[in-house]
Design a protein around this nucleic acid. Structure first.
Lengths: 108, 108
DNA sequence: TTATTATATGCGAATAATCTAATATATTAA
DNA sequence: TTAATATATTAGATTATTCGCATATAATAA
């Protein structure tokens, strides 16, 4: 039973394990964008972008809205942005810790 | 430059993309544990557990302390627990949303 | 030193994630 | 209906993760 929860939890978090998908989340932070808008901001083939978006939608991280010929993707739950930010903070803290260590070593 | 940040960010978040590793984080929430303790709580071969621990350590998520023959693993940054919790909330909200939908459909 | 316990590592097989290229579908305009 | 634009899907090749098994190392006790 608990095992299933961990599996679903991991399934959702898979979203964070790819740089392109993190970029998508970052680009959608301040509101929805169409595939086209994302595509023009992202240096990635359109098909590949669609694949990532589709995965993120399946996992319930993104939601879509059609407007004519465009499809707008938005972040389904703001908590996802929060988790994204927290993990980025973890990364930045790691980097600055390493930087301090290098300086210490250099000045020794 | 930004691309590198996304890659490192994804590298750290990889930690969340596997159910065993999530279980490890969950087990270490309230403090460090030795590999042996984890192993006896976890239904996973010892070698495989060590592999996960080693990966999480490399990524800076866990830190270790040796005490005699035992090695204690602990969570290096409490923010990791926070991110873990937030994503679990996202999951639970999804599940209850789906549950509500099922009930609606059944009663229709 | 040898035996024992705790932990880590290396390697290969199995599986999963990712990308590319081609093609399909859906909407709108002409 | 046809053409054009936006988006999605499929299949296959490539690469990365995960795991099991065997073995290695490290600390301690006898």
């Amino acid at each position: 039973m608990e095992k299933m929860i961990y599996e679903m939890h991991a399934g959702i978090c898979t979203i964070f394990s790819n740089p392109k998908r993190l970029e998508i989340i970052d680009l959608l932070r301040d509101g929805e964008k169409s595939v086209n808008e994302l595509s023009s901001l992202m240096d990635i083939p359109q098909a590949n972008l669609s694949q990532h978006l589709s995965l993120m939608r399946q996992r319930g991280i993104l939601e879509t809205r059609r407007e004519g010929v465009n499809i707008y993707y938005g972040i389904a739950n703001p908590k996802v942005i929060k988790a994204f930010e927290i993990m980025r903070e973890v990364l930045l803290e790691q980097l600055s810790k390493h930087e301090k260590m290098f300086k210490k070593i250099k000045s020794a």
